[in-house]
Write a protein that binds this DNA or RNA. Structure first.
Lengths: 337, 337
DNA sequence: ATCTTGTTTGACAACGCTGTCATCATAGCG
DNA sequence: CGCTATGATGACAGCGTTGTCAAACAAGAT
């Protein structure tokens, strides 16, 4: 591959025998260009390997071609899946994907957001929990008319893009999975209660219990905080309060790992004596030993779709559909086969 | 906070009573501006909250103000530390930090790099292992005259920035740490041999052994690949081939986790019956249970410094210092107290 | 005082693109 | 067949900055 000369819109226009404005129209998918000319321009551009200069576009159009993901999540695997999904969609459309961790101030992300918006221009934003549940943030974004998408929001918004799974159904289905395997003594390890999704997962858990013939007294709820540590501790509490539990549903994979490690350490065999299921199907679930049965949500696809829809919204200047539900899947592995 | 009007260079010039060119000079740290005017302009700019428009700068100067980190590493914790370090340095200087995963093609990253450079402009690049060891990549970068920094390179380059720890010394010192705790039967779990740093860590391990009174026959080398799984397997092999080993040095924390989990599962007490030390001091080391003694390298600072030096290189158009060695630290935790 | 030399400053044309608005084609209609 | 409405196209002026080059200034040297 050789270092190719950088062509400008003018070169393309000249080669195609049209004005630069027409070339511009083609590259912006503007209407009112004859199909024949569109093809011609596209052909010339492809031959020459032309790429519009982003800075010039930004400067002239006052758009930034940047989509920012605002988050406050220590789980780098989760973040990088979102980033990958965004980038796939962005590079298809000539946009930039950016990720920014917001530091809360008195429990609100508003300040951090304003700080950011002061420095950088964005054409669209994606929010993931817990930022997606901060109304003051959403209000600021709406005030500025910036298109936005919420990933797994606690409360869905009508005037923004929402991508989500049905957390409750998911929680119910993986609990059913445990129940079907004959477990009669169950426990749920919760995540942070400020995380709306965690509450929904738990609601699903209790729905499944209620629909079964398992008496509520055989079921325990342990408070966790999504960390591996809290999984360890949950198991310790369990051995004291309910040593007969044989099936555990942890609200995420990290806590499942913690629980299993603690169990192994205590000499319990997994899954023979204790079955554990997780949630998220993160790399932990695959690389732990035993590998962990987990409920997978297609984070990557969710991020990809939100980005696509966001760009669509930016271009057409109106929100078409707002609710996008994704299917989940139970990935069966060693910890609960 | 109110939405402040966006000021341009012209506004600043007018308020300060100078030409826009002088303002430009001030913001680019160009020479030949009287200190008094410099202060005046800076003062006005601060008062008005002026920020240069990046797109315009890019367009006019043909610089991109982007520094890209090219990698091929699944360890998202490592990546995000690098990213944080870069971002700290970049935002201090008005640059953008970007991370890009390169997919190898026939073992080389050259193609992926060229693909990227065709689409995007970069002012400087940072390479981390294993990309930092791909000579064809470095050659392309040099050919284009792009300033570059290598993080933990296998072979240090004279005409680029190198930031690193002394992997061999580090390997030796953490092995010494094991030996000092009285272990007489040791094992080393290697990473991928293609990862130069891993080989150095091992060399340090053997140096420490040689300097001690431990006979070589009491020492075992197990092949791993940096994954948790390979840590599990290494422990299994160990129980067969050398059940008397009491001290293990894993070339990274993930393998240390795997080893410990496998040990716990087999009923071995950690650290009472088996001590394990890791390398990198990743979040794994902190969140595992028992927590893991590990050798910490200041990745964040290393990324920060390389970015600073890179920007310095870009601005002054010449490389001043090229070698930057960082100190390491043994973080003592439960797995080998 | 005058001439050099180097330092400081500014006027103005790019940079590559999009927005605006005017003009030119084309088709449909009476 | 001319008229109107609408679609297709282009000319040109910005967008906010930096590069270039010329002009003004300051400080020594004579």
């Amino acid at each position: 591959m050789t270092i190719s000369k950088k062509y400008t819109i003018e070169d393309i226009a000249e080669h195609a025998g049209v004005s630069i404005k027409t070339v511009s129209r083609v590259f912006n998918n503007s209407p009112n260009v004859r199909q024949q000319k569109r093809d011609l321009v596209l052909g010339v551009a492809r031959d020459l390997g032309y790429r519009p200069n982003i800075s010039a576009r930004q400067l002239a159009s006052k758009r930034s071609f940047v989509i920012s993901h605002f988050h406050d999540n220590p789980n780098t695997d989760y973040l990088s899946e979102i980033y990958d999904g965004m980038r796939r969609a962005c590079s298809e459309q000539g946009y930039y994907a950016v990720a920014e961790k917001l530091e809360p101030k008195k429990g609100s992300y508003r300040h951090a957001l304003l700080e950011y918006l002061l420095r950088y221009e964005v054409d669209g934003v994606i929010l993931s929990p817990p930022v997606s549940d901060d109304n003051s943030v959403i209000r600021e974004i709406k005030k500025r008319g910036i298109p936005y998408a919420l990933i797994s929001p606690g409360k869905k918004k009508k005037d923004g893009i929402n991508v989500f799974i049905n957390e409750r159904d998911a929680g119910r289905s993986i609990t059913d999975f445990l129940i079907e395997r004959g477990h009669k003594q169950l426990a749920f390890i919760s995540g942070l209660d400020s995380h709306a999704a965690s509450l929904e997962r738990e609601a699903g858990f209790w729905e499944a219990i209620a629909a079964s013939d398992i008496p509520k007294k055989n079921v325990l709820r342990l408070a966790g905080d999504f960390s591996m540590q809290s999984g360890f501790r949950a198991f310790e509490k369990l051995t004291k309060k309910a040593p007969n539990v044989t099936g555990i549903f942890a609200a995420n994979d990290e806590m499942a790992v913690g629980t299993i490690v603690a169990a192994l350490r205590a000499g319990k065999k997994v899954p023979e004596e204790l079955s554990v299921v997780g949630f998220d199907d993160s790399p932990f679930a695959r690389s732990m030993w035993p590998t962990i049965t987990s409920l997978a949500q297609p984070i990557d696809d969710m991020a990809h779709l939100s980005t696509q829809k966001l760009i669509d919204w930016i271009h057409s200047d109106r929100l078409k559909e707002s609710q996008f539900e994704f299917a989940t899947q139970i990935i069966v592995r060693d910890s609960c086969p």
